[in-house]
Simulated scan of single mutants.
Amino acid sequence: MVWPSPCSVPPQVSVRGLSVQRDGARAVTRCLPEETPTALVFNGTTVAVMMVSPADLEDFACGFALSEGFIDRLDQIEALEVVGHGAGMEARFWVPQAQAVAIQARRRSMLGPVGCGLCGIDSLDQAIRPLPVLDHGGVTLSRQEVGQVTDSLRAHQPLHDQTHAVHAAGFMRPGQGIIIAREDVGRHNALDKLIGAMAREGLDAGAGAIVLTSRVSVEMVQKTVVAGCPVLIAVSAPTAHALRLAQAARLTLAAFARGGGFDVYAHPERIETGATDAA
């Protein structure tokens, strides 16, 4: 497998503006997050174009390919390079021809804006694809860890500190807290970057929990389950459909996790809640 040198594209830019407040107006300089169209190209064929923060693009490419089912394992990639040109960025994969044929079944061709991770899917069957069922065991978290982990994720968000306009996804291990995190203007992209980074570093997704700064929608559950992670913790709410998927896939889903508290909606057995009468 051949990995490229990272592309050097700043993930943020400084701009001047005018801040108008109750007590008057003043000139300000703000740091804004950059986003750029990034094409996922397999053996010369573009399968998806996503708007992505131009940082950790190799992680994003690998995570997207894994979580969206274009590949099953990193060793199916013969080579990967990220290159830039006038229109944006390209993550160019080379895979065996047999794999390239299979990829066509998952092909996407439309531009995917950051707010919708399902844009461009060719059919409804692909949008709500079958998920594996996770093992019962693997990890147990304390109520304190779950209640505090989204707060601790803040320490791993330098781009957010600069721009106040990006999401983060982190991975925590019991007793260790957040051990790796990634940021992006898109919540789906941040999760794909995390999944790709973990795969490239050989981290076992089954040994901890994924933590999100966003709401939990269908695709966030799908990506977490496909990655093999048994617990998903988010600062905001799940959708009803996402909850049904989590229940069926045996994924522990905790939401509204902030300030020391949280709600748990699916498979609470992986969290030592202390509750004896939970519904």
Rank of each mutant, 00 (worst) to 15 (best):
P4W: 03
P4S: 12
C7R: 15
P11E: 06
Q12L: 06
V13L: 11
L18Y: 06
Q21F: 04
G24L: 08
A25N: 08
A25Y: 12
A25G: 08
T38F: 10
A39E: 14
L40H: 14
T46Y: 09
A48Y: 09
V49Q: 14
P54Y: 12
F60P: 02
F60K: 03
A61C: 13
C62H: 06
F70E: 11
F70I: 12
A79N: 10
A79H: 05
L80P: 15
G86H: 14
M89R: 11
P96D: 14
Q97P: 12
A98L: 15
Q99G: 06
V101S: 13
V101L: 11
V101Q: 14
A105L: 10
R106K: 14
R107Y: 09
S109D: 11
C116K: 06
G117C: 10
G117R: 01
C119M: 13
C119Q: 13
D125C: 09
A127T: 13
P130E: 04
V133W: 05
V133A: 11
V133C: 13
G138K: 02
S142P: 07
Q144M: 09
Q148V: 03
T150E: 07
T150I: 08
Q157Y: 01
P158K: 03
H160I: 03
H160K: 11
H167C: 08
A168F: 01
R173Y: 07
P174G: 03
G175E: 15
G175K: 07
Q176W: 08
G177M: 06
I178L: 04
I179D: 05
I180S: 05
V185A: 07
L191G: 02
L194S: 00
A197W: 05
R200W: 05
L203F: 15
L203T: 08
A205L: 11
S214G: 04
R215I: 02
S217N: 12
V218H: 11
Q222S: 08
K223G: 05
T224L: 03
T224N: 00
V226G: 03
V226N: 07
A227E: 07
V235P: 01
V235C: 05
P238Y: 00
L245N: 01
A246D: 03
A249I: 00
L251F: 00
Y265P: 01
Y265I: 01
E269G: 09
E269L: 10
R270L: 04
E272L: 09
A279E: 13
